[in-house]
Design a protein around this nucleic acid. Structure first.
Lengths: 182, 182
DNA sequence: ACTAATAGTAGCGAGTCGAAACTATTGCAA
DNA sequence: TTGCAATAGTTTCGACTCGCTACTATTAGT
């Protein structure tokens, strides 16, 4: 097996897995984009729930992200909150109905669970490599969780973000931040 | 790391990789669906290039596949050929313009190439496991290449398909077949 | 000969996609 | 302080995907 065809095989497998996963998601109440946006909002911290952050994370434009968020808002799965300090910015918080939808497990997650511990770990590692390389390739942000960020400082009450200069609770530190940096 | 959160991590990585790859593909002349359909047609053997086969492979409906193929046809990247033996069925063959488009390598393939030999192999293996499990989950076909099929018989001139009862050339045997079975 | 099954298509409504044009703020510098 | 420029978000456009249902041919099986 040459290096070239191995690349092609992996590319095909990823494409195929993508299509199969998307097809599964269409069977649910939301389309794949809406599901991805909702899932992101459920894991992003309160500084990372604006349309532009969603656009960045989903690798799309602000315009498209805005539309998807409006669609989710019409379905009352998320609720918009306007900022007091900056009248331009908006934060979308997930509602309890939105959280309920995320509880339904997909066909893909069921399949991932069947992998043994070691396969699972190496798969996670190589996927992480690919995602990071893709992000670097397009100049995107890493979007990691606070506690793995270089701006995060552990305190006795929880944590502190040195960039935004705000204290963080324990649950905050486990959420995704758009300012995340390694 | 519990088994549950590891599953979620992998799911997120796959979703993210999917979005990043799709975003890359939108920069090209085709949208992700059209690209996937065109790519499939370039690798499928002559018995596997009908709209219903494309639908099966892309995990979508015949209606949707039909539309995508019409869009590719309008762009003259594929050309329809009606069958003589069965007046209902149609085969779409890729044109030289279509082949040219497939030559442009994506950002993802560049990234995959940076993986070392061993990582690459284990990634391919685990992805294969996932795809096969997903196919089984939804009752889909495996769509492998002829030479790995149980109906394939090697002859001195090339190969022979025992199911369709037709001789196969060397290049035929390396293409994807919708009747593929393990 | 009469059904059923199969192959493909058309049209519908909701929604995605990038791109471009647009409004409303906020930041910054002369 | 005024005067841009940058930023946040939205709207609209045209092309398209998506599942779905209804539809037309054609072929297969009884």
């Amino acid at each position: 097996m040459t290096a070239f065809s191995q690349t092609r095989v992996i590319q095909d497998l990823i494409d195929r897995l993508t299509r199969l996963n998307a097809a599964e998601e269409w069977n649910g109440p939301l389309n794949p984009s809406q599901f991805a946006a909702l899932s992101y909002l459920s894991r992003a911290n309160r500084f990372s729930r604006a349309p532009s952050h969603v656009a960045d994370y989903l690798a799309t434009t602000r315009g498209t992200a805005s539309q998807t968020l409006k669609a989710l808002s019409r379905k009352e799965l998320i609720k918009e909150t306007r900022s007091d300090t900056d009248k331009r910015s908006i934060r979308y918080d997930i509602t309890s109905e939105g959280n309920d939808i995320l509880k339904t497990t997909s066909g893909l997650s069921g399949v991932i669970e069947t992998l043994d511990q070691e396969t699972s770990q190496t798969l996670a590692d190589s996927l992480k490599t690919l995602v990071l390389a893709m992000l670097q390739h397009r100049g995107g942000r890493s979007f990691g969780v606070c506690k793995t960020c270089r701006h995060h400082q552990k305190t006795d009450t929880g944590g502190y973000c040195q960039l935004l200069e705000v204290p963080l609770s324990g649950s905050d530190a486990g959420q995704i931040c758009h300012e995340h940096a390694l």
